[in-house]
Amino acid sequence: MASKRLFQSVAEQIATLIDEGAYPPGTRLPGERELAEKLGVSRVTIREAEIALQAVGRLEIKTGSGVYVSEKKPAPGELLPKASAFEVTEARLLVESEAAALAAHNITDEAIGRLEKLIDQMRHGSEDEANEADEQFHQTIAEASNNSAMVHTVKSLWRMREELPEVKATYAAVCVHDAESRTEEHKAVFDALKARDPAGARAAMREHFHRLIESMLDATEKLALAEVQQRASESRERFAGVAKIV
């Protein structure tokens, strides 16, 4: 995959325009079509760039109203770092494996019961319900570690998973096709926690993320191909427009 996807480059161009005063704080950005023509990209790319800028607090997307430049820059603690799906997953592997080991020492019967219900929801619920259960499963384990720093870190990593567009897209490409494997991996973590087995919980969580990284390698290749196809389509449209003018 290219080192920088197209929407990221466009997001930087929009941010520069904001910093230079073209779009002052509180003002509404031009529509997708106008920005797409101005920057020579598709409306889809503009939309992805705006979502990325919203994730870092530069824009506010108001449904039915438009996209606005944030009144103030977010505080440093509110900013999300630029990170790839692989970086986020690597961090999750390191942090959540140890969280699971700690949780095995401290987890209550009540938390075990909650985890069991969440696995059932992952297995039998809709896609949205399964994703919600997935998040709650990992949060419950972090909370069972009885370590507030661990809880905060896991929540921050999940926020990066959901709010960084490239990370979210990669996870979506993987999780849609491996729901059964994902559920069984969570069940293995659950079984180790229920047995109060720290080493087993750590190993099961690590195996879950190792498999996820392998799946991401395949998904990333597909995303790279889609990006090339998108750029080719945009070039074709642009040159077709030039030909008509000539």
Results as ranks from 00 to 15, higher is better:
120 D>F: 02
131 N>C: 02
108 T>H: 01
138 H>G: 07
163 E>K: 14
151 V>M: 04
152 H>K: 14
133 A>M: 04
117 K>G: 02
127 E>I: 12
168 K>D: 08
124 H>V: 01
138 H>W: 10
103 A>M: 04
130 A>L: 03
149 A>D: 14
132 E>Q: 14
146 N>G: 07
172 A>I: 00
122 M>V: 08
138 H>R: 09
99 A>H: 10
103 A>K: 05
143 E>K: 09
156 S>N: 07
130 A>W: 03
133 A>Q: 08
126 S>L: 06
121 Q>N: 02
129 E>V: 11
119 I>A: 04
100 A>E: 06
141 I>H: 13
111 A>H: 09
169 A>I: 10
158 W>I: 14
133 A>V: 07
123 R>T: 14
114 R>W: 01
151 V>N: 05
115 L>T: 08
122 M>H: 02
144 A>E: 03
121 Q>K: 13
169 A>P: 02
148 S>K: 11
160 M>S: 15
116 E>I: 00
113 G>T: 00
156 S>Y: 06
147 N>L: 07
160 M>I: 03
151 V>W: 04
146 N>H: 12
107 I>P: 03
120 D>L: 08
124 H>A: 14
119 I>H: 01
157 L>K: 12
140 T>M: 03
123 R>W: 06
127 E>D: 13
165 P>W: 09
154 V>D: 05
135 E>G: 10
165 P>Q: 04
166 E>G: 15
170 T>E: 11
104 A>L: 01
146 N>E: 15
134 D>W: 01
157 L>E: 05
147 N>S: 10
117 K>T: 01
152 H>E: 15
154 V>R: 04
142 A>N: 03
120 D>I: 00
168 K>A: 13
153 T>L: 15
155 K>H: 13
150 M>I: 15
161 R>S: 13
102 L>F: 13
127 E>N: 10
159 R>Q: 12
105 H>A: 07
112 I>T: 00
169 A>K: 12
155 K>S: 14
143 E>T: 06
116 E>C: 02
153 T>N: 10
166 E>L: 13
147 N>I: 07
157 L>V: 05
99 A>S: 12
127 E>K: 06
145 S>F: 11
130 A>M: 09
98 E>F: 15
168 K>M: 12
167 V>W: 07
107 I>F: 00
174 V>H: 05
143 E>Y: 08
97 S>Q: 02
133 A>F: 03
143 E>N: 11
166 E>K: 06
105 H>P: 03
125 G>I: 08
172 A>Q: 12
128 D>N: 06
97 S>W: 13
142 A>V: 02
